[in-house]
């Protein structure tokens, strides 16, 4: 059954007189990779923060696996938060903990009965899964390269085996090869672990490689469609975005021209 694992209805976010979202709707289905695109300042991060429950919207509902997180607080909200994993743009690894401890932190919070040795092995499993070498486990975030930070952040996001994964600009700051590798890794894990991935990105290569459907934030709302069809959308910003010089190569490939 395909039901929306994440559903946002009529979201309104306002800061003072500045309206960021005005009746935004978004629906993410199970097992898909959903890309969120938008110009700078259109509220991609605000949308993510709302969906993660870090910030309460002025109006609207946000349902994660059926739970409306705008109505939840305390323990109930915490329980929902255990069901998704997030990676932040800069990685947001805890700088005073090494990679292994970073991955174990969610386990310590939510799986208290795990024995220390089981915790070590499960964390190592996640670290290996994202393609990090074993000796990275004892390294501190400051000692990692940009690509390794992104992978370590992904390992931490997968610590509790969530079904829903949010990625904020996962390939920003990586070279094209590193970015392509990260895309492949993400797709591999998405298939293997049957993840639903919601990804904010600017990287056109990434969008064309990984996304099934794309939501574009324009005029404080979201236009959602499959990748093939969204590129035909008449809105000028979407046209400019998908038909600029940087995108044309992908369109030719996609349409077999």
């Amino acid at each position: 059954m395909i039901y929306p694992i994440l559903e946002v209805c009529g979201l309104v976010n306002r800061f003072g007189s500045q309206v960021v979202h005005d009746g935004l709707d978004m629906e993410v289905r199970e097992d898909e990779v959903f890309g969120i695109v938008g110009g700078s300042g259109t509220g991609k991060s605000v949308l993510l923060r709302s969906v993660l429950g870090l910030q309460r919207p002025q109006a609207g509902t946000i349902r994660i696996e059926g739970h409306d997180i705008t109505q939840l607080s305390g323990g109930a909200l915490r329980a929902v938060k255990a069901r998704y994993g997030v990676t932040f743009q800069q990685g947001a690894l805890y700088s005073s903990l090494d990679v292994l401890q970073n991955v174990q932190l969610p386990m310590l919070e939510y799986m208290q009965d795990l024995s220390p040795s089981a915790r070590d092995e499960l964390a190592m499993l996640k670290i290996r899964l994202v393609g990090l070498p074993a000796d990275a486990a004892r390294k501190y975030p400051a000692e990692l390269s940009g690509g390794m930070v992104k992978r370590a952040a992904l390992a931490r996001a997968l610590a509790l085996d969530p079904r829903l994964l949010f990625l904020d600009e996962p390939t920003s700051g990586l070279d094209p090869i590193g970015a392509a590798e990260f895309d492949e890794l993400m797709l591999y894990l998405q298939k293997q672990l049957r993840l639903t991935v919601v990804m904010i990105t600017h990287d056109l290569d990434s969008i064309f490689r990984t996304c099934n459907r794309v939501g574009v934030i324009v005029d404080r709302r979201m236009e959602t469609d499959t990748l093939d069809r969204i590129v035909e959308h008449p809105h000028p910003w979407i046209q400019a975005y998908f038909h600029g010089d940087r995108a044309s190569i992908h369109l030719k490939v996609a349409h077999g021209a």
């Binding site: 040795s117 092995e121 190592m124 074993a134 000796d135 486990a137 004892r138």
Partner: peptide, 13 residues
Amino acid sequence: VKGLREELTELPA
């Protein structure tokens, strides 16, 4: 059986 465990403890502590 505890291969991983050993690898972990071998890491410089």
